[in-house]
Design a protein around this nucleic acid. Structure first.
Length: 239
DNA sequence: GTCTGTATTTTGGAGAGGTC
DNA sequence: GACCTCTCCAAAATACAGAC
């Protein structure tokens, strides 16, 4: 999968293992039947409700980490829903934003040569503090898997932590600094993004307040596949 | 520089405790 | 008893501090 003149796609460091989702339970666990018929328990690195993407019987891909210190050797990475691969690993977007920043995935973030992770700010921690020729900016990253039609939505449940992040970013803007929120849309079938008003009305209200305050919203689309992840650019914000 | 331990992050369920 | 609020816990990755 090459990407022409566009940004370099991310490739998984080792081949993923295909299977079928049998059940998901206790937030962190998933029963998966591998292609060879073996039944395994995989770690589910997404503690949210996974609205619309947790479909029993759907094809999934797992990464394999046979380190002795791990209890579960397999990690659930993606699931195929309506013919589209959806990334479910919530830790991946932060790592890939870090990775993509070095490779020019985000033209909106050009001019930031240095970055510091997990910076304490206000009531919570912000994922990145970017500094460089472009000045400085705070960047928070959110993983998005829920979609209705071609519209990606976040959050898919009440998130007080997410609300705190929005309040902190608004405060950062009020202090005259740049503040950005990058919604990592972990599926290729969405061209629009909107706050999940139905699930968290307060978050949706804060989202609009943040927009008005000048917080820069970047709903970033990626194409997820068993070989890697390819950047697709920004989705249209609908409020 | 390497190793070890601790804190933090994600969300929803379970259980405890308080109030009516 | 019913309801509400609060705290703890689950697995794993990651960052960071401290010891050697």
């Amino acid at each position: 999968m090459e990407c022409g003149d566009g940004p370099v796609p991310y490739r998984f460091s080792s081949p993923l293992h295909r299977g079928v989702l049998r059940s998901r339970y206790k937030r962190f666990l998933a029963d998966v039947e591998l292609e060879n018929g073996q039944q395994i328990i995989a770690h589910c690195p997404n503690t949210g409700p996974m609205s619309g993407v947790c479909q029993v019987g759907a094809p999934v891909y797992l990464s394999h980490h046979p380190e002795p210190k791990r209890k579960l050797a397999y990690t659930w990475e993606m699931i195929q829903v309506d013919g589209v691969w959806v990334g479910i690993n919530t830790s991946l977007p932060n790592r890939l934003v870090d990775w993509g920043l070095e490779r020019g995935w985000f033209p909106q973030l050009a001019g930031f040569s240095r970055r510091q992770r997990e910076v304490t700010c206000g009531k919570s921690k912000i994922d990145f503090l970017l500094t460089g020729d472009a000045g400085s900016a705070y960047l928070e990253v959110k993983n998005t898997t829920w979609a209705v039609g071609s519209r990606a939505l976040f959050p898919d449940t009440v998130t007080t932590r997410g609300q705190k992040h929005l309040e902190d970013l608004i405060q950062i803007r009020q202090q005259g600094q740049r503040a950005l929120l990058l919604y990592w849309i972990n599926r290729a079938d969405c061209t629009e993004f909107a706050p999940g008003e139905e699930r968290d009305p307060r978050y949706a209200r804060l989202f609009r307040e943040a927009l008005q305050a000048g917080v820069e919203m970047l709903p970033y689309r990626v194409e997820v596949s068993p070989t890697g992840i390819r950047p697709l650019g920004l989705a249209k914000i609908v409020v």
